Amino acid sequence: MERRIAIKQVLIFAGGMALLPSFLKAAGKASVQLNNLDVGIEQEKLLSQIAEIIIPKTTTPGATELGLHLFVLKMVDDCYDANARQKFMSGLKSFEGLDDAALKQMVSDTNYGKSSISEDAKAFYRIMKQQIINGYMNSKYVMTNLVKWELVPARYNGYFPVKA
């Protein structure tokens, strides 16, 4: 009888130790693992809103539904140098604290070059838009449903009429 209780307690302890890392994960951190960037939940939500403004949901999935804001974070974290990452993060701060209408207007103005924002904000938007489009065009949805790709440049038609 004592052995059953001991085994039960060991299994409960092992299960708790297995779940411990998920409980110790810092609250308010981004949902992807980043090595060089320190992005919080609120900033991730803002990136999601900006991505959805750039590629909104229509008859096709939008940027948020495809998780492109996470793609942008991972690409900036892994592929850009420290200077570009610093400009990205400081440029993101200029978009914080705006309501939905003001955010949409600022993204639109930045896209068309109308707004007089800082160089860091322009660098942020340039990286964001470039990586959103890159992620969208290489997403599974686009590559399987929208792009009809053929391995061979043209199909072989054995019945094509040839003039002698």
Rank of each mutant, 00 (worst) to 15 (best):
M1Y: 10
M1N: 15
E2L: 13
I5K: 15
V10G: 00
I12M: 13
F13W: 05
A14K: 13
A18C: 09
P21G: 10
L24C: 11
K25S: 10
S31M: 06
S31L: 06
Q33T: 15
Q33C: 01
L34D: 02
L37S: 05
D38I: 02
V39A: 10
G40A: 02
G40L: 07
I41E: 12
I41Y: 10
L46K: 06
S48D: 14
S48H: 01
I50D: 02
I53Q: 00
I54G: 03
I54K: 09
I55C: 08
P56M: 01
K57C: 00
K57D: 03
T60K: 15
P61L: 06
P61K: 04
G62F: 01
T64Y: 08
E65I: 08
E65Y: 06
L68A: 06
H69S: 15
H69A: 15
F71R: 08
F71S: 14
L73H: 00
V76F: 01
C79E: 15
D81I: 01
N83M: 06
R85L: 05
R85I: 02
R85T: 10
K87F: 12
F88W: 01
S90Q: 10
G91D: 05
G91T: 07
K93L: 14
K93R: 08
S94R: 14
S94Q: 15
F95R: 09
E96R: 00
G97W: 07
D99F: 06
L103F: 01
Q105C: 01
V107H: 05
D109M: 12
Y112Q: 15
G113L: 02
S115H: 03
S115N: 06
E119F: 09
D120K: 02
A121L: 04
A121S: 14
K122I: 07
K122T: 02
I127A: 05
I127S: 07
Q130A: 12
I132W: 01
G135M: 01
M137G: 09
N138V: 05
S139E: 06
K140A: 14
Y141H: 13
M143G: 11
L146I: 06
K148N: 12
E150T: 15
L151S: 14
P153V: 00
A154E: 15
R155M: 00
R155C: 00
Y156W: 11
N157C: 11
F160H: 09
F160E: 15
V162E: 09
V162R: 12
K163W: 11
A164G: 11
